[in-house]
Amino acid sequence: MPSEPTAKVVDLPSRGKNPGGKAAASDTIIDIRNLSLTFQTADAPVFALSNIDLQVRAGEFVSLIGPSGCGKTTLMRIVADLEQPTEGSVTVNGVSPREARLKRSYGYIFQAAALYPWRNVLRNVELPHEIMGVAKEEREAKARRYLELVGLKGFEKKYPWQLSGGMQQRVSIARALSFDPQLLLMDEPFGALDEITRDRMNEELLQIWEKTRKTVIFVTHSIDEAVLLSTKIVVMSARPGRIIEVIDSTLPAKRTLDTRETPAALDLAHRVRLGLKAGHSYD
């Protein structure tokens, strides 16, 4: 945080509350402290998130994993300023989520591709730049470059309905990358895809992440996916949504789909599974 330039890299405890006042590392992109969110419903309040502490450093790939309703999507929506916490503080790049959103410092990838059906692939990818007022030539060139990066060269003039689900999701990834945000927020991006497509998308995401080294927050239901992709796995549990465990990945930086079969990966998956089980025993 720029306000505290002397702060050293601090390894925060992965469990329990942050005592507060502890400074985040200078390369901290996301700093969540003591965050809670309660939805007021007609019959009873719903504790969507409770006492969340999480720090994400630049270049990390952080997966949020947990059962349905554990608030992992809500947590990410708070980071994106699409949802407001009832308690606690969040900073993104050292500023509030709202300021970060106004600075367009993150790209959000939704569970569905959310393409605009009346725009072709190229113009869908141009959309963020169009809104930011970038000149036609530049935004088209960027769109073409990122479409190539996600392996969709030659599909520029196709319309969304002419693409498969996996290709649509790749368009939405190109769209999020196109304006080069430091931070990617991915909300179960491959949740709706079949396993074979999902594997291929995971492989491509690894390559993209290697090339761009963006900070990624990735919400998923899949242990395999979390193990394969992440440098840090955040295990969550439901009612109230809270963090059970933060596991640092022991896998090498260079990964392929086969990495999942290595002893280190299997061990990591086992730890995640134990964490999920521990969270489950609470209710």
């Binding site: 699409l82 959103r101 790209g107 959000y108 959309l127 809104i131």
Partner: peptide, 27 residues
Amino acid sequence: PDPLQMDLMRTYSAGTMQVFWKLRVPA
């Protein structure tokens, strides 16, 4: 427009007029 399409515009910090012309009108 569905909520996702609206959220997308919000993540780009699009103004009301931009949401109107680029999303609401075409839809």
